[in-house]
Design a protein around this nucleic acid. Structure first.
Lengths: 110, 110
DNA sequence: ACTTATACCTTGTTCAGCTATGTGTAGTCC
DNA sequence: GGACTACACATAGCTGAACAAGGTATAAGT
């Protein structure tokens, strides 16, 4: 059901990236993240769906109802142009930040 | 005054690491993080001091008043044994997590 | 006198993520 | 028939870290 805790602020990037290739529905986003991260990122559905709604409200994702491969009804999310820009800038920010944290954690100087 | 936003959850690790080498006072912790991270990590004091108090309350840091090199009064924080363990496990968690995020962001598969 | 750097602190607010829970469909296994 | 798993969506209440914006005070430089 639930995965290990998230570092707040990273979820949006992960979601935006997941739908960057093509539209996906919520459940598939969760599955894809689990797959790509070797089970490290296991997003609770009670966290994932509100996040999708937030991103929609902010105009970073668009949503429409559709059919899965197996004929089920599902809500498909796609990146808007704003979302694509947001992904890009957040990715840059993450990369810079994680490098900074890494260099702090590696440091042995007092 | 303020730095760029933090990814929530990383601040504790950064602080614990800063005092891992030896006791430091709050202001020096901020300065050290800025230095080690090439100005990427610039922790607002209104964020830093409450965090130090929290870590103290949780028993991960000990605190005592002392004198700086320049003769000023300052509160020095040091790692407790619990704090050292927490640093270790959080470091592991961060490393695993950031690798996972990285591998998601690098992915090009749909 | 003024500014900068040092060094500490608190109060109020926001909102992401956590926890728990609910709905319903469809396939499989015994 | 009954139980179970996977799929797919959703909301409501809570917590607490971080943010924003202030405040106190000393010392050194110009």
């Amino acid at each position: 059901m639930s995965g290990s805790d998230i570092f707040t602020g990273t979820l949006d990037i992960l979601i935006l990236k997941a739908v960057a290739v093509g539209p996906l529905h919520g459940y598939a986003i969760g599955r894809w993240l689990r797959l790509q991260s070797d089970d490290v990122l296991d997003i609770d559905e009670g966290v994932l769906y509100p996040a999708l709604h937030r991103l929609g409200r902010r105009g970073l994702l668009s949503a429409k109802w559709g059919q899965t491969d197996t004929g089920r009804r599902a809500r498909f999310y796609a990146l808007t142009p704003d979302g694509r820009e947001q992904l890009k800038s957040e990715k840059t920010r993450w990369t810079e930040y994680s490098k900074a944290v890494h260099s702090v954690l590696q440091s042995s100087e007092g």
